[in-house]
């Protein structure tokens, strides 16, 4: 059993202590927006916020967490995808397959919290998540858009 605070709710999860947070979130809490990509802290698909910091949930065990630790997953980021990062992602049509994007959005959100006006070098250093579809160019632009460093493109009207 473990008590975890996920997206503001305290959950009692029937789970062994050595279970990675990723799998507790996906299989016990039933929140599948957080993805499995590598299981070894390489890809960032499993990124969540732990007390405001972005972490790779595949490599943190449930036993290492306290009930007071605040875990936020992509589902708990903002109602109706209304955060600045999510809106920028939508405006620039960032996702391709989308599988890595929960993790990308969590990483970008954490970056902007610390560094509201990031340089390209800040982005390079903070955004180490893998995207196999190669959406990096748009991710970079969307971070600058969310930071208010560039203007939104005019949406094409039909």
């Amino acid at each position: 059993m473990a008590k975890l605070n996920v997206n503001g709710k305290t959950l009692d999860l029937k789970v062994d202590g050595d279970t990675p947070l990723l799998w507790a979130i996906r299989e016990q809490a039933g929140l599948t927006g957080t993805k499995y990509g590598c299981g070894v802290a390489q890809c960032g698909a499993c990124s969540v916020h732990l007390n405001g910091e972005v972490v790779r949930s595949c490599s943190i065990t449930v036993a290492s967490l306290k009930p007071t630790d605040k875990i936020v997953t992509i589902e708990g980021l903002a109602p109706n995808a209304s955060s600045a990062v999510q809106k920028a992602w939508a405006a620039l049509d960032v996702p391709q397959c989308g599988y890595c994007q929960s993790g990308q959005i969590m990483a970008a959100t954490a970056l902007l919290k610390k560094t509201p006006k990031p340089t390209d070098a800040d982005i390079d250093a903070a955004m180490t998540n893998i995207c196999r579809c190669g959406t990096y160019q748009r991710i970079r632009a969307a971070i600058h858009l969310a930071a208010g460093q560039i203007a939104a493109p005019a949406a094409k009207k039909v």
């Binding site: 927006g33 997953t73 939508a90 049509d93 989308g98 039909v158």
Partner: peptide
């Protein structure tokens, strides 16, 4: 409509974890 740089129709649920890939099926 064709030939224009329209936004994708399938972006929304990729932004907030709602999209159900096969790996997410319950």
């Amino acid at each position: 409509i064709a030939g224009k740089p329209l936004r994708r129709l399938d972006t929304g649920d990729k932004l907030d974890g709602r999209k159900v890939y096969a790996i997410d099926v319950k």
